[in-house]
């Protein structure tokens, strides 16, 4: 039972970790939180659902659709909530992303109606049983996809020229512009990428929970944000660690407490860390 919950936690932690990375990408560049991230994830989930219901049952195509929709929505949010609001106090952008969060949620319930759509199962068979714990193919696939995504991001940021530009712009955009880096383009690219990641995870989550609905983004966004704060929003490794730890803690809390306490545990972590250690476990000193 302990092992089973840990495995479930690992799979769910992969989802949290990827959303957390989305948050930390935006934070790194703009010192800002995109509170509509959960809704981008929700729209990605719908995109994936539409693909498997009406186009092709291929889950890979669904994931790509989630990625693309997330990219487009992320790009749009950046243009409206950040680029158009440059030079005004940060709080305006923040409130604007909250506005986006409500807008996108209402848009989705208008388009798809309020009821939960069921997403077909994929790879839900048990791959193997170990000490009475069942591990499904999907769980293994989720962890592998998450790890591959993280490695790809690591390569993108640390081995490519555009990655160097993203890091330089995040550290000091004025000086980066003196090197000929196109600050607006780099920012837009990283923002879109964070949206794409959220949309992609949305499809993964829809498959894991077999469900898609307009309000699924709210809790996912909060959990992803919690994971990022927990591990350290200033660093991608921190966001990953936070995601997996949160997944493990949540699922173990189900074992040792009632399952009703699951979200309570997460928000307790969020509030505690925001109050006492806003830099998270791995985060460097917050530079605001």
């Amino acid at each position: 039972m302990f092992l089973q919950q840990l495995i479930n936690g690992l799979a769910q932690g992969s989802l949290f970790a990827l959303i957390a990375i989305s948050f930390s990408l935006v934070w790194g560049l703009l010192r800002m939180v995109n509170f509509a991230m959960g809704e981008v994830y929700m729209l990605g989930a719908y995109a994936g659902w539409l693909v498997v219901m009406y186009a092709t049952p291929n889950l890979g195509v669904a994931l790509v659709a989630g990625f693309v929709i997330g990219w487009i929505v992320g790009w749009f949010i950046e243009k409206v909530a950040f680029k158009a609001m440059r030079g005004v106090p940060h709080i305006a952008s923040l409130v604007c992303t909250i506005g986006f969060s409500f807008f996108l949620k209402e848009l989705a319930s208008a388009l798809f109606r309020a009821e939960t759509k069921s997403m077909p199962s994929y790879y839900s068979d048990t791959a193997f049983t170990f000490a009475e714990a069942n591990i499904s193919y999907l769980q293994i696939i989720m962890v592998v996809i998450a790890v591959v995504m993280m490695v790809l991001l690591q390569i993108l940021f640390y081995r490519t020229k555009i990655g160097l530009a993203v890091r330089a712009v995040a550290l000091d955009y004025r000086t980066a512009s003196l090197m000929g880096m196109k600050v607006d383009r780099v920012t837009s690219l990283a923002f879109s990428l964070s949206g794409a990641l959220a949309g992609f995870v949305g499809v993964l989550a829809a498959t894991y929970y077999n469900a898609v609905n307009a309000s699924m983004g709210f809790v996912a966004g909060l959990k992803g944000f919690t994971a990022a704060v927990f591990g350290g929003i200033t660093s991608i490794p921190g966001a990953i660690l936070g995601g997996y730890l949160l997944g493990a803690i949540e699922n173990l809390s189900v074992k040792y407490m009632s399952s009703g306490y699951r979200d309570l545990v997460s928000y307790f972590i969020l509030i505690t860390f925001l109050l006492f250690r806003p830099n998270g476990i791995l985060g460097k000193k917050a530079k605001l």
Binding site: A165, L171, D172, M179, G180
Partner: peptide
Amino acid sequence: KIFGELSVEENLYAGAY
């Protein structure tokens, strides 16, 4: 205005962007 968290070499590569 050195990029403090980039290595010396990465700073130089940034200059050659």
